[in-house]
Amino acid sequence: MSDHSEELPIESGAEAPSAAHAPEAPEEPSAARPQDAVASAPEDALATTLSRRRFLEGVGAVAGMFAAGVVPALLSAAPSSAGAATGEPEAASASAEGIEKIIEEDQPINYPGKPVWYADPAGKQKWAMVIDTKACIGCRKCVYACVEENNIGRDSGFTYIQVLEMEQGEIDLETAVLDYGEGGKPDKWYLPVQCMHCAKPTCVYGCPVKATWKEPDGIVVIDYDKCIACRNCIVTCPYGARHFNWVEPDVPKAERNPKVPVEERAGVVDKCTWCIQRTRNGMTTACVQACPVGARKFGDLNDPDSEVSVLLKTRRVIRLKEEDGTEPMIWYVG
């Protein structure tokens, strides 16, 4: 289980971030950005100074490369997130460095360089989400909004977001209840789980045909026209976030969102896209908009003043199954 409450070694102080990692002029044309990111990823990983921890991780990465026999393992050679409590005396600038590291590691993987056809090309953002489990009341408003926004088949038998009901005093997925009745109970607590858009996504590594990849802004997308339906990504995802359209999504014509494909999704794998059709156009995700208690925050880590950046710098957060090393981009704050 994942609850070792590994916290970011972040001290308070939202003013700490320097201009070094702040986005310069967001209006700047961003066409060249993806290529830059692809090219610089392995170099970044190698150029970092070799502290003891990084050296050990390097050894691990070399072993990983040997096992997989491939170059893309280089991408996983980047040191793991700031989440690991090391006790090394680097707390002084931790908050700035912490988020910088997260952004640095969140690189495109298997990115074919072509834009998603129903959304704008990726901008300079690094998307992240923070969910306040203390505020969440388990009403599933986010689930319903998501189903409507993303044209999820009404009888497909899955939703992108799964809300787990747990007993007070424990964070144990084994005893969590997924299909609790309508509305939350005050004596339980709720953990919404969806695609984490991991920095090291096992689904992207596991797809045999590169039909799923990580975009430059961190969103993991699926090419519905390429997916061969082997379902290896469903098996390999530690968050149960991927689902298969066993039937063609059944969405009444009147309720369809014209910005999201429907027919193409029959017989392929499907999952949360962080509402790519909205977020790339300056809107927030449907789940964030629908949450009645404001438990969900979505934003850009490159922007030091965004809600997510401030929350990561000021609050104690955990990530689900941190020990799996997938470096999810959804944080939970309690």
């Binding site: 170059v71 393992a73 590594y205 045999p208 045909v209 590169k210 290896n232």
Partner: peptide, 9 residues
């Protein structure tokens, strides 16, 4: 055409 070398499949 586009085999992914990290996939055991």
């Amino acid at each position: 055409l586009t085999p992914n070398p990290t996939s055991p499949f």
